[in-house]
Simulated assay, not measured.
Amino acid sequence: MTDVGEIRRLIEHHPWVTLVSAGADGLVASHYAVLLDDDRDDLTIVGHVGKPDDAILDLGKRELLVVVQGPHGYITPRWYGDGPAVPTWNFVSAHLSGIPEILTPEENLRVLDRLVERFEGEDGRGLYRAPNDAAFVDRLAAGTVGFRLTPSRVVGKRKLSQNRPAEVVDTIIEGLADGPDANPALAAEMQRAADARRRAGRA
């Protein structure tokens, strides 16, 4: 998966990511929500970590790997028909690597405000909405470190049974859409990919 638009869509819909760094004592990982940088149209992301995760990750000093996990799930061989088959796991993911830039306190506040707005919505409780005031928000923000990552390396992966005949893919989608093995998010992702292949004449 190399299309920037598709990877942006993945990040937009699955903002809870894993941050991995090789720290002084070995590999370390943290989990945070990120956003696409609204000033860019590439794969630049912005986010924050709570202290002391910035020190644990050596944020801004070492390469950071950001793992974006999209829909995924078990695929039973029952859906393949009567021939020999083994189970597998379908998934969509992206790995973004690079050395992040540390945001200024003002930039970090803007990112935190955007992050709250993203999940609260226009009618939700915004970062500065009462009973919060600016002093309260500033104290909380001081315990975080914001970052911007423009990845120098991107690896997108999409395994959605695209090697199977169209009729088998349709059976898998039906099985994931409803019933004991239901995984609607994965079914929708597979349907979207199958429709794209059919439009391109690669079904």
Score class of each variant (00 low, 15 high):
residue 131 P to C: 12
residue 55 A to G: 01
residue 116 V to L: 13
residue 31 H to N: 12
residue 68 V to R: 11
residue 156 G to F: 10
residue 25 D to C: 03
residue 164 R to K: 15
residue 53 D to Y: 11
residue 27 L to N: 01
residue 77 P to K: 15
residue 106 E to D: 15
residue 64 L to S: 07
residue 60 G to V: 05
residue 116 V to H: 02
residue 135 A to Y: 03
residue 97 S to G: 01
residue 113 D to H: 07
residue 40 R to N: 02
residue 48 H to Y: 14
residue 102 I to A: 08
residue 58 D to I: 00
residue 42 D to N: 11
residue 112 L to V: 11
residue 117 E to W: 12
residue 29 A to D: 04
residue 123 D to Y: 12
residue 66 V to A: 10
residue 26 G to Q: 06
residue 131 P to G: 12
residue 107 E to Q: 10
residue 110 R to G: 10
residue 88 T to H: 09
residue 31 H to K: 05
residue 101 E to R: 14
residue 48 H to A: 03
residue 103 L to V: 06
residue 129 R to Q: 13
residue 110 R to F: 01
residue 131 P to R: 10
residue 78 R to Y: 12
residue 128 Y to E: 08
residue 53 D to P: 00
residue 71 P to C: 05
residue 163 N to G: 04
residue 30 S to Q: 03
residue 110 R to K: 12
residue 24 A to F: 07
residue 123 D to P: 01
residue 121 G to I: 06
residue 103 L to Q: 13
residue 73 G to A: 05
residue 158 R to V: 04
residue 65 L to H: 03
residue 50 G to N: 15
residue 112 L to H: 03
residue 67 V to R: 13
residue 165 P to D: 08
residue 88 T to C: 11
residue 124 G to S: 03
residue 77 P to I: 14
residue 159 K to C: 02
residue 145 V to L: 04
residue 22 A to Q: 10
residue 135 A to Q: 12
residue 81 G to E: 13
residue 93 S to D: 09
residue 44 T to F: 02
residue 89 W to M: 10
residue 126 G to A: 14
residue 154 V to R: 00
residue 150 T to V: 01
residue 22 A to H: 14
residue 25 D to H: 10
residue 22 A to D: 11
residue 139 R to S: 08
residue 124 G to Q: 06
residue 31 H to M: 10
residue 130 A to L: 13
residue 28 V to N: 05
residue 49 V to K: 04
residue 33 A to P: 03
residue 41 D to E: 15
residue 25 D to K: 02
residue 76 T to Y: 11
residue 136 F to Y: 15
residue 46 V to G: 06
residue 94 A to G: 02
residue 43 L to S: 05
residue 77 P to V: 15
residue 129 R to S: 15
residue 158 R to F: 01
residue 124 G to N: 08
residue 143 G to Y: 05
residue 30 S to A: 14
residue 29 A to M: 11
residue 125 R to F: 09
residue 30 S to C: 05
residue 127 L to I: 09
residue 81 G to C: 10
residue 62 R to V: 08
residue 59 L to Y: 05
residue 32 Y to G: 01
residue 106 E to R: 11
residue 70 G to D: 04
residue 40 R to T: 07
residue 39 D to L: 07
residue 69 Q to F: 13
residue 85 A to V: 05
residue 119 F to K: 07
residue 151 P to K: 01
residue 144 T to F: 10
residue 42 D to C: 05
residue 25 D to A: 15
residue 138 D to I: 00
residue 80 Y to T: 03
residue 162 Q to F: 02
residue 164 R to V: 05
residue 161 S to Y: 08
residue 87 P to H: 13
residue 141 A to F: 07
residue 117 E to C: 06
residue 66 V to Q: 12
residue 121 G to Y: 04
residue 145 V to R: 06
residue 46 V to E: 03
residue 47 G to C: 08
residue 143 G to C: 08
residue 109 L to K: 04
residue 132 N to A: 14
residue 157 K to Q: 09
residue 134 A to V: 14
residue 66 V to T: 04
residue 66 V to M: 11
residue 75 I to D: 09
residue 96 L to V: 00
residue 111 V to R: 02
residue 58 D to K: 04
residue 39 D to E: 12
residue 53 D to W: 07
residue 57 L to R: 06
residue 161 S to L: 04
residue 150 T to A: 06
residue 64 L to A: 04
residue 28 V to W: 03
residue 33 A to D: 05
residue 21 S to D: 01
